[in-house]
């Protein structure tokens, strides 16, 4: 279970992070929220789509890692991808809110957290270590990138460019799945977008992430292939 606590030298002085176990925390993530700053690295392997937050209904960009709840086809004892999304490697740290201020929080129950093994967060005097300073810098970057991604989504919604992408999949063993809830950029609408809107997307540097997302959809085929391989392995054993 996730238990988020605001990071403090008093409470977490002896906490250590085992960096070898960080990616394991994404072992059961089917969808990982991603930011446009990492699109160029993501689209080498993952399908990147829009989906709606269960809590707020707002659109998010996510990398798709599996088909079933908690299925991450990129996890097989270790992360099988060339690039691991920021929202996985930033764990077990989160940014929380305390009286409208951003505070760094830690999931004390995460697999990588212990008192014994890994990188220390604070030194003997209670000062933060270089490791923690780097983590904080990464979280700050991620926070900015998330804001930028929200603006990107807002711009696409304002241009009415999102379209639902229902998937009808037949796996190698004959199982059929209908997947709803993914959205992508409507290419036909993009092709017919009014000139001034197109220019505004271009000036905001949104054309590149748009085309990267569209191109990344081909990875659904490799994801299905990964699923088929896994189904075949299970059938064998």
């Amino acid at each position: 279970m996730t238990k988020l606590t605001a990071l403090s030298p008093e409470r977490h002085k002896h906490f250590k992070i085992d960096t070898n176990r960080i990616e394991a925390q994404g072992a059961h993530e089917r969808l990982v929220p991603v930011v446009i700053a990492e699109f160029s690295k993501l689209v080498v392997q993952y399908p990147v789509v829009f989906t709606k937050s269960e809590e707020t209904g707002e659109f998010l960009c996510v990398a798709v890692l599996g088909f079933e709840p908690k299925e991450n086809l990129f996890w097989q004892e270790s992360w099988q991808g060339i690039y691991t999304p920021l929202n996985v490697i930033r764990q077990p740290f989160f940014v929380g809110k305390e009286k409208d201020e951003n505070v760094v929080c830690i999931d004390e129950h995460a697999k990588s957290v212990s008192l014994e093994r890994g990188e220390a967060l604070f030194d003997e005097d209670g000062r933060e270590t270089a490791f923690l300073t780097d983590i904080k810098a990464m979280l700050a970057q991620l926070l900015n990138a998330e804001e930028e991604t929200k603006k990107f989504i807002r711009a696409l919604l304002d241009c009415d460019l999102l379209v639902a992408m229902p998937l009808e999949i037949t796996f190698g063993n004959g199982d059929k799945r209908s997947i709803r809830g993914f959205y992508t950029v409507d290419e036909a609408k993009l092709d017919n977008l009014a000139a001034e809107k197109l220019v505004s997307l271009q000036q905001a540097k949104y054309l590149s992430p748009i085309y990267m997302m569209i191109a990344s959809l081909g990875h659904f085929y490799s994801l299905i292939q990964m699923k088929n391989n896994r189904l075949a392995e299970h059938a064998d054993t």
Partner: peptide
């Protein structure tokens, strides 16, 4: 309450 806070999406 959520509609007031986040709005509904058009699609």
């Amino acid at each position: 309450n959520k509609i007031h806070q986040f709005g509904l999406q058009k699609i």
